[in-house]
Amino acid sequence: MLEAVSLECMRGDRRLFADVGFSLAPGELLHVRGRNGSGKSSLLRMLCGLVLPESGEIKWNGLNIRRSDEYKHSLTYLGHLNGIKEELSGVENLRINCGLAGSDVGESAALDALARIGLAGREHLPVKVLSQGQRRRVMLARLLVASTPLWILDEPLAALDTDAIGLMRSLFEFHLENGGMLILTTHQELDIAAKTTHEIRFSS
């Protein structure tokens, strides 16, 4: 269970948001909406622990995320940067990224995940020859092999085609059905079936 209590974020002298709070239980979805530059990404980075809140607290199972060793094992964060290396192939990128997150994924499982996400036949090409959407798929393939309960995704659907968006939606629903938690931002209209859908809307 993830809880946030009256978070405040300052960027330089500007207050991006204040008094943001929510609690997210297994099977629940949090959709963060707002215009460009309204602080969505800052909130997600804050929830990962990359940015310290100006005030407020974020708790994972009752413990501040700064003090919780378990939190990093429970979290998968995918930002707006892909986090993949152009010189490496899709399968190398996937296995290394999973390894860095602390879960070893075998060659066959990685190939299988890439095939499912629509990169069959391109698994061994260096990522630099792939298109923007295909690179995004390499990154998102991590979700197919991840076993973490909490996913924090910043614009996961950017650059994806309709097929891939459909696939991601069913993946999100599968994750939520199995007691996962999902926090995401997206500008696209996306109907994700969830037990409870929370929404945070940034106005400015």
């Binding site: 622990g49 060793d69 964060y77 940067l81 986090g83 290396k85 997150a101």
Partner: peptide, 14 residues
């Protein structure tokens, strides 16, 4: 830093 892998390394449980 440029391709976002540094973020992932900060989040990894090591």
């Amino acid at each position: 830093h440029g391709d976002g892998t540094l973020e992932q390394m900060l989040l990894c449980p090591e």
